[in-house]
Design a protein around this nucleic acid. Structure first.
Length: 110
RNA sequence: CCAGUUGACCGGGUGGCCGCUCCCGCUUGCGGGGGAGGAAAGUCCGGGCUCCACGAAAACACGGUGCCGGAUAAAGUCCGGCGGGGGCGACCCCAGGGAAAGUGCCACAGAAAGCAAACUACCCGGUUUCGGCCGGGAAAAGGUGAAAGGGUGCGGUAAGAGCGCACCGCGGGCCCGGCAACGGGACUGGCAGGGUAAACCCCACCGGGAGCAAGACCAAAUAGGGACCGCACGGAGGCAACUCCACUCGCGUUUUCGGAGCAGCGGUCCGGGUUGGUUGCACCAGGCGUUCAGCGAUGGACGUCGCAGAUGAAUGGCCACCGCGUCGCACGUUUCGGCGUGCGGCCCUACAGAACCCGGCUUACAGGUCAACUGGCACU
């Protein structure tokens, strides 16, 4: 999957559709690229640097196992929250699947 | 064996599945290799490097450092020593220049806090209504305080006092040892000179500023700027810059006077800036080993190794087993402190994530290992 790297992409996704969960917040918006893009945000409020890194890595691993769920032509942003640090990996996967499927129909197309 | 001191170190391992980033190779999507820390942290010092400023030097101001000697690129770091303080000891701690250049401050308590004075009590004389009062002497005793004008003892005296003497302390010059800080010795003075410089200050030494978001390079879209060319464009003068006249607009009741404008369109090129990309960017005060010099910090010689380079930021995610720790239960053992075995639970790990690079300092850290030394107890 394509990784989001530029600030403008994150801002555009933040203005799109949104879904809240216990482990993370999911944002998504349509984009010009043909494939699906994914970005991760973990703010400083969540924890110190090693904890934030660990949350991002677990989210990345969960996304890699659920590639089929993501629609093409769309940018997704995952905002990690602290429970994602301690949760069972299965729970994380399940929550991700539910939220993506719930959010997909709500994303406006270009 | 118990208690302790100092120094050094580790800070999970193996396997499987799925991934990230950099480098190299070629058959261009595969193969091989590298990939977090002792503090990567705080950003407190010192450098390298980059840009800016600057003729040089000195002085002043400001900031920093502060026993002596050495190490180092340098430092507020390190090593060795000196002095003071603490501990039975190994050892630890010290913001450790100057209070006789000057100024300031010393709360509360206390009679008195800096210049010598005297509250209670003491001694002598006088007086008395026998409670005291007056004059003089003295600074030993009590009490206050962080600190009360050297300390202890003897002599001395009306009572006392460095008033005299001995020892200790202090000051002074002299001699000896040491590169020095400083130490030792005899002599002498005769107690004077309270503390505070993390109060101002004085003395000595050091110091341009900002930082890799430094700095260098490349470049799309949009808006605007400049130059040139073409078309177009009132007149006159001038090589040209431009000047004058006419025209239009504004202010004004009007005139005079004053002010502004005199173009536009198209093309090419240039420079600036936002965003993005490339570079800086990883082989250097380098690590390890041996050896030599040195008490040591460290330095020399020789050999050997190649050691992260991300940029919404890689270096991992999940599972299994092992190991470690801890808690509970059962059994055995015991010098009643524990120890061993088995089963189960928890954590499967503390502090913490490179961001230009080094040398330090400081702070955080579950658990564990090793070495040297000290004080006990027991045994030989």
């Amino acid at each position: 999957m394509r990784q989001l790297r530029q600030r403008a992409q994150f801002v555009r996704a933040a203005r799109g559709s949104k879904a809240n969960g216990r482990f993370f917040v999911l944002q998504a918006a349509a984009c010009v690229e043909p494939d699906a893009g994914i970005g991760y945000t973990v703010t400083k409020r969540v924890g110190n640097a090693p904890e934030r890194n660990r949350i991002k890595r677990r989210l990345r691993a969960a996304v890699r196992q659920s590639t089929d769920l993501f629609r093409p032509n769309t940018d997704y942003v995952l905002i990690g929250r602290r429970p994602a640090l301690y949760a069972q990996f299965d729970e994380l996967l399940e929550a991700l699947g539910q939220m993506v499927q719930r959010l997909n129909p709500a994303i406006p197309t270009r």
